[in-house]
Nucleic acid binder design. Structure first.
Lengths: 145, 145
DNA sequence: TTGCCACTTCAAGTCAACTTGAGGTCAAGA
DNA sequence: TCTTGACCTCAAGTTGACTTGAAGTGGCAA
């Protein structure tokens, strides 16, 4: 049966072995057992890692990712919380579209300062709290480190 | 003229004053001057902060955001690099859509383990390196913070 | 059976991005 | 004049997410 050594999983996923050990340590992924000392991972670990990667991209902490998807795809969060997460991501997608448009504009516009370019300002007017006082941004998290 | 005290800017943007000072220290934002000891910010700082917030959401480091947009909206990056960033963001948006769909599925599907649910697996098959060995994810960065 | 080398553990180190704390300044209201 | 309270600086501390290093283990090819 096609179990994967940590080195193989690392190579296929692009995630360093040290990180995989760390992920297992904090309960984010699971190895199916050991051969000697060596962890053996099932192929679903790859899917799991893809999910983790996307969750990180979305700005979730490893703790949140763990809660949302669990080791074996079992969520510890109530349905409503999951939908809220999804809503956050929707908002984030809208922000990213704005940002992408702003970047493309900066790449093409020849104005010396984009802050004074009306087109640029219009692009950004779609951004969170760009001018109107609003609540602190909802899905914001630090992505530190 | 409507200059903003750091406290006001903080309140309107949702960004802590300590963070605003830190951002100024690393050259990410600029105050227009001082009144006594106190920094005075122009209203464009709000737009600037919105941009920074979106950049962080996209997983860029503060250094990269600085390079892409500068203090006064002046980029230090060549056109091509900016378009590459935009391309990265496009990829990220696609990933987020997948993740959102996965979350909505987990919220609704009653299968005990989603990893074994064919619909879930199909959703994830759109993810980076979900099964096929590919390059390490391109736009991935640690968001450490 | 020897030797290699990919793995193992565990503790400590690193890094970005902030946050906190101590001690100080200053304008305004009581 | 005195006291608040919002700001200031600067150094040190914190946090999450890893990474590194030292010292050890064990499967497998020669």
């Amino acid at each position: 049966m096609n179990l994967l050594d940590i080195g193989v999983l690392s190579e296929r996923s692009g995630v360093p072995a040290s990180t995989l050990r760390y992920y297992e340590e904090i309960g984010l992924i699971e190895s199916l057992g050991r051969r000697g000392l060596r962890r053996q991972f099932g192929p679903e670990a790859l899917t799991q890692l893809a999910l983790i990667s996307m969750g990180k991209t979305a700005g979730f902490s490893l703790e949140e990712i763990k809660n949302a998807f669990g080791k074996r795809g079992v969520s510890t969060l109530p349905r409503q919380a999951l939908h809220r997460r999804a809503d956050d991501i929707d908002a984030q997608i809208r922000g990213l579209i704005t940002l992408r448009n702003a970047l493309r504009h900066v790449a093409e516009c020849s104005a010396p300062s984009h802050m004074e370019c009306p087109k640029f300002r219009r692009l950004l007017s779609l951004a969170p709290y760009s001018h109107a006082p609003t609540e602190a941004q909802p899905g914001a998290r630090a992505k530190r480190k």
